[in-house]
Every structure is written in structure tokens, then in C-alpha cells.
């Protein structure tokens, strides 16, 4: 597989096939937020330290700021928008486990 310049890329996000136009050097976080409107994953340090941008790739948590969008091709990506009242989300609500809430989607 080659991806030489800006072009179409199909991504499987939250069990939907979504078409995006990406540069090979775009990170998954930028594409999720700016093109797909999924702003639940947040840019924090953009360096893989803080975890605010965490999403699931094939069920495993990965920092979307340290992953290229092209790497996501053929994998199942799940953002906070694709998690529907998981037990952990309910626990956060019940225990009021928020301060400002910016990183909460990453924590979940």
C-alpha cells in the first residue's frame, strides 16, 4: 500500500464507514476532529503524555495524536461518541468524577 499525497481514505469509525481526505502525515486525532466532527477526543499535549486524545483501535486504547490516520485504514476505530453509556461512563456520572472534564473522554 502506498499513500503518496493528499487523497481519499476510508476509515471505519464507530462501526460506520467514513470517507476522509487526508495527508499521509495527518494524525488520526486531527482527522477525527476536523473532518469527521468527532471532537470527543481532545488535543492535550499532542506528545502522547496526557491521554486526552485516547481512542480505541481494534478494542485497544491508543493515543490518536501519536497515530497516523493512514495507519487506521482497515482497523476498527472507536471514539467516545461510539461508546453508548458504558458502565465506566455511568460510574463517572454517579461518582461525579470530573474536574473540568476536558480529558474525561480520554480517561473513559
Amino acid at each position: 500500500m502506498k499513500f503518496l499525497d493528499k487523497g481519499f481514505l476510508e476509515l471505519n469509525v464507530n462501526k460506520e464507514k467514513r470517507n476522509t481526505v487526508v495527508r499521509p502525515s495527518d494524525t488520526l486525532l486531527e482527522v477525527l476532529r476536523d473532518q469527521l466532527g468527532l471532537t470527543g477526543a481532545k488535543p492535550g499535549c499532542k506528545n502522547g503524555d496526557c491521554g486526552a486524545c485516547t481512542v480505541l483501535v481494534n478494542g485497544l486504547p491508543v493515543k490518536s495524536c501519536l497515530m497516523l490516520a493512514v495507519e487506521g485504514a482497515g482497523h476498527e476505530i472507536t471514539t467516545i461518541e461510539g461508546i453508548n453509556v458504558a458502565p465506566m461512563q455511568q460510574a463517572f456520572v454517579d461518582e461525579f468524577a470530573f474536574q473540568c472534564g476536558y480529558c474525561t473522554s480520554g480517561l473513559l
Binding site: 500500500m1 502506498k2 499521509p24 502525515s25 497516523l68
Partner: peptide
């Protein structure tokens, strides 16, 4: 953001 472009190959 990566402030430049590169080509991506997956052999």
C-alpha cells in the same frame, strides 16, 4: 500536527 508532508509506504 506534523508541519510537513511525507509519503507513506506499507510494503
Amino acid at each position: 500536527m506534523i508541519p510537513f508532508d511525507f509519503e507513506y509506504y506499507k510494503p
